[in-house]
């Protein structure tokens, strides 16, 4: 969405990102495998969970971060309207699955599969 608002190209579900000059090559995880696209910079890239190892904040840095000033702003300060335009009517529990039966061995499982018409 950000990419669209900025009118810039996007690379979503990225599993590999390489910057070369004024473009970035992004390898994306798609349904059947991988897809590679080249995007003109600036571009918006969203990552897949296997892209890299996150950097964890070290304790000294956490301590240092505590002393940094924080500027509290509201969306209105930036002229942004955040009124939701979708209303949640209700939230319900999905149908629960109940635990079924346990079979003792492969033969019994075979019998069940046959009964379902899966195995011949």
């Amino acid at each position: 969405m950000l990419a669209a608002l900025m009118g810039r190209p996007q690379g979503t579900f990225a599993s590999k990102v390489e910057v070369e000059g004024d473009s970035v090559t992004v390898t994306r995880e798609v349904d059947g495998g991988l897809e590679t696209v080249k995007l003109a910079i600036p571009a918006i890239v969203t990552t897949d969970l296997r892209l890299n190892e996150p950097r964890y904040a070290s304790l000294p840095n956490i301590m240092k971060a505590k002393s940094k000033p924080l500027a509290n702003k509201t969306p209105a300060d930036y002229g942004v309207d955040t009124t939701p335009r979708i209303e949640t009517v209700k939230v319900s529990e999905p149908p629960k699955r109940v635990a079924g039966i346990k079979v003792a061995d492969v033969d019994e499982l075979m019998a069940k599969l046959k009964a379902m018409g899966v195995a011949a």
């Binding site: 059947g32 495998g33 897809e35 590679t36 696209v37 080249k38 995007l39």
Partner: peptide
């Protein structure tokens, strides 16, 4: 207008099995 994006290639895993 592809707006600055170019398709380079894809590696789709081939499989005889159902999707």
């Amino acid at each position: 207008d592809a707006g600055g994006a170019t398709f380079i290639g894809q590696e789709i895993s081939k499989s005889e099995r159902p999707e």
